[in-house]
């Protein structure tokens, strides 16, 4: 199980950068709701690659997989599974 706090913090920073100061829950969709944009998705991809070693070229990319903290957690589980397998 990964520590999700850095992800919450990073997503929070992305929201603040785009002028969104409202809080968000772990389940709340951030991209499909329009609170974050594709360019923020790129920042998140780089963050997940650097911090958690996620290799999207192996996993395949789906924006829904990074839409919320919960989805990112699932993605990290899948990523760990892929690298073990």
């Amino acid at each position: 199980m990964h520590d999700l706090e850095p992800i919450r913090q990073f997503l929070g920073e992305l929201l603040v950068r785009s002028g969104d100061l409202d809080s968000f829950s772990d389940e709340e969709p951030l991209f499909s709701s329009g609170r974050l944009q594709s360019i923020d998705g790129v920042e998140l991809v780089v963050f997940l690659e650097e911090k958690f070693g996620v290799d999207f070229s192996k996993l395949g990319f789906d924006q829904a997989a990074i839409d919320s903290v919960t989805n990112v957690a699932r993605l990290l589980e899948r990523s760990s599974g892929e690298s073990l397998g």
């Binding site: 944009q37 594709s38 998705g41 790129v42 991809v45 999207f56 070229s57 990319f61 924006q63």
Partner: peptide
């Protein structure tokens, strides 16, 4: 571009931008 034609931009991002970016 994002505010003018959002769904076209999303299409290009999903089908071309991200695949190129992650590879």
């Amino acid at each position: 571009w994002n505010r003018y034609y959002y769904y076209f931009k999303e299409l290009l991002v999903d089908f071309f931008y991200y695949p190129a970016f992650i590879r």
